[in-house]
Design a protein around this nucleic acid. Structure first.
Lengths: 208, 208
DNA sequence: GGAGAAATTGAATCATCGTTCAAATTAACC
DNA sequence: GGTTAATTTGAACGATGATTCAATTTCTCC
C-alpha cells in the first residue's frame, strides 16, 4: 500500500504503470485547471474525466494542491528545456526568441497543455510556491536578457525588456483560456504565428 | 430597508452615497479578483479591505456572483466606450488599434482595474454569462474587423485576425496578474509601450 | 490458479465559505 | 432632538468539496 510515496520497492512494471497513471491525472487536471481555474475545479471533475472516483486520486497524490504543483513542475521543466535549446541552437536574439515562443506555444497546445505561469501560484503551499516562483523568475529573467541583448546589439527596438516579456507571456498564457484541441487552429501554425507577431513587434523597422 | 433592490424611493443624497459605496466595493473586489481569482477570493477578504464585515456587502449586492457580474459589466462598458472613440477619432487600422490598446491598458491599470475578459466567465450565472459573453464577443469581433480591414488595405501584415486579437487581449489581460499601482511602472507609458509593441508586430515592414 | 499487493470505492468526516436573519448602531431629515 | 430609515453586525445555518479510512475489487507474478 504505497499511496503517494515510496516508489522504491516497486517492480519496474508496476512503477511504470503508476507513472503513466500519474501523467494521465496531470493531463486531466491541466485541462480542467486551464478551462475553469484551480479553485473551480473539483477532484470529482478531474476523476470523472478518467472514469474513476475522486478518492482514487489519493493513491497518486497526497492532496489537490500537490496535483497543481506537479502541473507547474512538469510544464516549467518543459519550457525551460526549450529555453536551453534556444540558447544552444541560435545566436541572434530574434532567433532565440522565436524558438522559445514557438515551443512555449506548443507546450500550451499539446496534451500536457501546461500554462506553468498562468496557473494560480497563490494556491500553492508556501513551500511549493517558493520553488515555482523561483523557477518562473529564472525563466522570465532569461527571456528578458535575451531581449536586453537584442536591444544592446541594435537588433531589437529599444523596449523595456520587462514589459516585452510580460506581453509575450501574457499572450502565450492566455492560450489556455481559448484553445481547444478539437478546435480549428493548427497547433504548429499557431506557434509560428505567435512568433512572427511577437518577434516582429520587437525588431527594428530598418535593419541598420 | 432596500438591500440590493429598489433605488427608486431614495433621496438623492442617500442614492449617491449608496452608489459610491457600491463602487468602493467593486474596486476592492476587482483588486482581489485580479490578484487571486474569483473563487480564491472570499467575501471576508473583500470586506476587510473596506474595514467592514462581510455581511455588510449583502446590503449592496444580493450575492458574490453579482459582484463579479458588476465588475464585468462596468469594465466591459468602459472598454467598449473606448472602442467607439477609436472608430470615431481615427481612420486607419493602426491608429484605431493603437487607441484601443492604449485605453484598454489604462482601464486595467486604473483604480477600476478591470479585466473584463480575464475574469472567470464560467463562474457567472447562466443569465449573466450569456450577457457577458455576448458583449465580449462584440468587442472581440470589432477588434478583429479592424485588423481584417488593415490587412485588406495592405496596411497590416497578412495575419489571422482571430489569432492577433487573442495575442492582444492575452497580453492586456495578463496585466491584472503582475501590475500593482504601487509598483514602478507608469500607467500611461505602459499603454504606449503596449500599443507600440502590439501594433508594430502587425504593420508591414516596407509600406508598399 | 492463488496469495499478496495495488487500485479503487462508498460512506463518513471536517473545514471552509456563502448566505440568512434578527438585533444593534449609525446617519438623515423634519 | 427625536423619529425613521439606512447601514452594519454577530451568531447561526447549510452546501460544497477536500480528505480519511476500512472494505472491496482488480491486478501481478510465482
Amino acid at each position: 500500500m504505497p499511496p503517494t510515496e515510496s516508489t522504491a520497492t516497486l517492480s519496474p512494471h508496476i512503477r511504470e504503470k503508476r507513472r503513466r497513471r500519474r501523467v494521465e491525472i496531470l493531463h486531466a487536471a491541466l485541462r480542467a485547471f486551464g478551462e475553469k481555474g484551480y479553485h473551480a475545479t473539483t477532484l470529482d471533475h478531474i476523476a470523472e474525466q478518467l472514469g474513476v472516483r475522486k478518492t482514487a486520486l489519493y493513491h497518486y497524490f497526497p492532496d489537490k494542491e500537490s496535483i497543481l504543483y506537479a502541473c507547474h513542475h512538469e510544464s516549467l521543466a518543459e519550457v525551460r528545456r526549450h529555453l536551453k535549446e534556444a540558447q544552444e541552437q541560435h545566436t541572434t536574439a530574434s532567433d532565440r526568441l522565436r524558438h522559445v515562443i514557438r515551443e512555449h506555444v506548443r507546450v500550451m497546445t499539446d496534451t500536457l497543455q501546461g500554462s506553468p505561469l498562468a496557473f494560480e501560484v497563490p494556491a500553492l503551499s508556501p513551500e511549493h510556491q517558493r520553488k515555482v516562483v523561483a523557477a518562473r523568475d529564472r525563466y522570465e529573467r532569461a527571456l528578458r536578457s535575451i531581449i536586453a541583448e537584442g536591444v544592446r546589439d541594435g537588433e531589437l527596438r529599444s523596449v523595456d525588456p520587462k514589459v516585452a516579456v510580460f506581453v509575450i507571456l501574457g499572450a502565450i498564457n492566455w492560450i489556455a483560456r481559448w484553445y481547444r484541441p478539437e478546435g480549428s487552429f493548427d497547433a504548429r501554425e499557431l506557434g509560428t504565428e505567435f512568433a512572427d507577431y511577437l518577434v516582429g513587434g520587437l525588431t527594428c523597422r530598418q535593419p541598420q
